[in-house]
Design a protein around this nucleic acid. Sequence first.
DNA 1: GGAGTATTGTACCGATTGGTACAATGTGTC
DNA 2: GACACATTGTACCAATCGGTACAATACTCC
Lengths: 189, 189
Amino acid sequence: MRRIAPDRDGLLAMIGEVFREHGYEGASLALIGEATGLGKGSLYHFFPGGKEEMARAVIAHINGWFEDNVFAPLRDSVDPLAGIGHMFAATDGYFRSGRRVCLIGAFALDDSRDLFADQIRDYFGRWVTHLAEALVRSGHRPDEAGELAEETVAAIQGALTLARAANDLDVFSRALRRLRRRLGLPANI
Amino acid sequence: MRRIAPDRDGLLAMIGEVFREHGYEGASLALIGEATGLGKGSLYHFFPGGKEEMARAVIAHINGWFEDNVFAPLRDSVDPLAGIGHMFAATDGYFRSGRRVCLIGAFALDDSRDLFADQIRDYFGRWVTHLAEALVRSGHRPDEAGELAEETVAAIQGALTLARAANDLDVFSRALRRLRRRLGLPANI
DNA sequence: GGAGTATTGTACCGATTGGTACAATGTGTC
DNA sequence: GACACATTGTACCAATCGGTACAATACTCC
């Protein structure tokens, strides 16, 4: 019996890709087992709560990544524009310039939203809030900053949808470029 | 044996709601049967190709609705701004001010995109193209109009995602209001 | 090396999946 | 009423679903 001993981060990343590509319903335990190289025995050992616990852990994992790589820079950068620039760079990297889709956004659209409503609302809510605060610090009026933040996060989600629908990565790149300009950043980082 | 004789439009609308709420994978024949009041015998009589043919017909049905109620006004209105206003009103109505989600956008995100790639690309492509042409007619430069159209359609998709994630319909209303203003329309229709 | 725990493969479960077959019944037409 | 065709309910199929049970193996620490 070989011992793979996948670290939890790597494991969650692999499971996350399955959910991302197939959705919550479409991600069968067979697919997850295939992607991770683990049988049901192992999967239910690490996630006694089954598929739902896996999804919950994956969402929390993504939430943590955004906390560290997107929200923290937005909150802690001395120069708010630099923090916003960091956000765009991390976002472009995370979604692989449009090749990848937002798992949490996809979950928000169908049935599975009801299962993970709190985590989903938290993810988008924090993104909008932290971006809005950075925009306030960069000189925007609070109400205007709130709308601009909401508009930006929605535009990113919409661009991911449209890029995948059109099968054209440039859709996503163009959207990020427009958003950068509107938020007061130089055209390229 | 009672005879319901649902007209095809009503039938496709009912099936469409199931796909919209549960996604392609999640929409089981049991759910579809329950929603339509039809057994498998009837469903496979009307759609010999099974679930895939049902989904294809539903997407085509939606495509047709948008052709009549969104794209045609964009193309045929003498006043392009009136056509664009018509588009926003129809869009707000169709998505029930954010209560409803875009089935085709949801399909674009997961596995099912590969099954329906042509129809999905067609839907979004026509929307962007027709909006861009109306924007050109209203005075925008062609390249600028293309970007603005793409941005608008993406913003609508993103707003639907965000509204459902936040469980807050105002997110969608605010997005539509901003888009109307940016495209040169009066604040309320 | 032995004890205790972590991990794993396998067999199995009932329920549900999409799909097929087909006879029975409804409906419209002459 | 008789015929043709449209529609439907039911029974059935193999495959897969998520999940459980458990014994066998790996690993860790003494």
